[in-house]
Design a protein around this nucleic acid. Sequence first.
DNA 1: ACTTGCCTTCCATCCACCGGAAGGTTGGTC
DNA 2: GACCAACCTTCCGGTGGATGGAAGGCAAGT
Lengths: 247, 247
Amino acid sequence: MSASVTSRALDLLGAFDTDHRALTLSALARRSSLPLATAHRLVGELHRWGALARLDSGEYVIGRRLWDLGLLAPVQAGLRQAASPFLHDLYGATLATVHLAVRDGTEVLYIDRLSGHDSVPVVSKIGSRLPMHATGVGKVLLAYGPEEVLTEVLGNLTRVTAYTITQPARLLDQIRRVRADGYATTGEEMSLGACSVAVPVRGADREVVAALGIVVPDLRRERARLVSALQVAAQGITRTLTSVEWK
Amino acid sequence: MSASVTSRALDLLGAFDTDHRALTLSALARRSSLPLATAHRLVGELHRWGALARLDSGEYVIGRRLWDLGLLAPVQAGLRQAASPFLHDLYGATLATVHLAVRDGTEVLYIDRLSGHDSVPVVSKIGSRLPMHATGVGKVLLAYGPEEVLTEVLGNLTRVTAYTITQPARLLDQIRRVRADGYATTGEEMSLGACSVAVPVRGADREVVAALGIVVPDLRRERARLVSALQVAAQGITRTLTSVEWK
DNA sequence: ACTTGCCTTCCATCCACCGGAAGGTTGGTC
DNA sequence: GACCAACCTTCCGGTGGATGGAAGGCAAGT
């Protein structure tokens, strides 16, 4: 359990997150609980290798080489590649923010996103994680995911906006409806002024591998059109996934 | 110059590249010239931390945590964010493959890409590097980049297809025309059946920070329309870049 | 039964990491 | 200009943890 030298370098990297993209040496040392001199040396090595880059300001940021490496991660690489054209189509047809997400533990992990200038501003980013119970894609993944996950999520419904569903019974009700209808919706449950629709994306064995969602300001009128556009796209993705072999 | 322990872990990571996304432990050890036992321990640490993931087959791949980290890299983060909506617009208007690229050394680095099902198949991927003299975006970046880079590239014009420009004088001639016209074109110089148009993207100080390109099967008729669409998009990106402050 | 190529564990040696301390730099305040 | 605070950088001796050869286990192929 002791801190091996490698893990110290990793702890340093772990000091970076979405709210801390650029850190000074001393901030890095503080955040990773390492003596300054030690951090200095390790950061030097990481920098030399290209894992970290240094801004003019002297702050360190994640370097290009780690970016490269990150792109090699098979975080649903096949899925993303297969989905990409359909996401564009969907965006072209609706001009709304389009999301592709998978489940990561008890959260939703956004693995791709498109949004234009006119789209509703939303919190999600590629790589960000959001609670399942407050997002359209989340509800879909809950409805078609393992029962344990649903149980766990039901026990921890944190409020985000005034419209967030926090009563287990109500969420469960909605989840049942998702299973019946084949799609999920939200109304300002994650951020005000943003509603969403989402459908499941199935893989080669018909199991649900991801969720495809769209965010619009209002879906009272559009719902039917959006659902069918989403379903067409989801089917297209499935077709691509089953035809292309991904070793 | 000696192999510090941290750099060994990094060497291990360096064993991964686009052609080697999944490696067995012994392959990793071989590719990074480390004794198997050492590699075993280091890989174990990286795996525990989440830098590496293990497939069912036993092979290791880049893990989700490194993917996360990579997304934090400011590889033109501001540029990508500013450009994203315009890329979508451009894609919507042309249904062709759209590229956003910057110069990295003497190569072109693609930092964003959109392509649909109907688009011309191309070799570029996000994160991939291609030679400057055989791509539209590359010619643009050559025309507006440092003179030294141009000199170096001129000295090393490797052939890719039958149409690749390999005579320095001819390339220089084209570069001059790019400066005069404000856009560059290619005709099957990188891959057969693919032509491209590209324009420079300027930053806050009017300096060229990136290139925006589009790939089509044929540009005899369309050229004028594509160039103007590209220029509109490039100006939009510049406007966004100058209005949004990127700390 | 033998070979080949993986992965994993062990442990005594030794050297490379550790980190306190000292010194340098920048920038702010009186 | 003198002082202070908060950074960053370099140095170096002692020591504790990384090292990697060796041995053993497992699976597949001959």
